[in-house]
Amino acid sequence: MKLPITILTITLAFLAWAHGGEQVFKQPSEFIKQSFGGKIPETSVISLSGDIKSRAKNIMAHNYRESRVRYWKQGSRSVWILEEIGKTEPITTGFLVENGRIKSVEILIYRESHGWEVNKPFFTKQFSSASLKEGDQISADIKNIAGATLSVRAVTKLARLALYLDSQV
């Protein structure tokens, strides 16, 4: 009986101690600012309907979580802040696309308990200069990380979606 009581006590202590605040690596507005020289351009919106909706669905393997996706564009640059669930929680990811190629990827808000590796530059730098190739696949060879498969898959899908949506605006 000692063990369940110990676990219960510690659990209650955790509950009492735990407090709010999520793992925000960078605020979305900061990512937009750094992509456009310190300013936030006007927010634009693309509706996912018709062909765009079905191509987005093919990329994500399900309908994207929102039917209207916002983006920020100036000249040949566009910023997309997209979300996809890894295992249990949405991963908020920022993509800067320039001339149809990914210039930078950053995980902005991470809520999963596993798959932490995708937050790190050694993973996100693989997307640098990637473009969309035949079949809406990504041109870069994004290597899987055992134990983070779902997070890797989620971020890779979002990169494909960002490149595809960029080609439509």
């Binding site: 999520e22 605020q27 979305p28 507005s29 600012k33 006007e42 927010t43 634009s44 802040i81 902005l108």
Partner: peptide, 24 residues
């Protein structure tokens, strides 16, 4: 905040960040 963001237009940094934050 998400609905406001989906409408587009000139939005503040606070509005954008609130749209992506997990609601408490």
């Amino acid at each position: 905040f998400r609905e406001r963001l989906a409408e587009g237009g000139r939005l503040s940094a606070e509005d954008i960040d609130a749209a992506f934050a997990t609601p408490q």
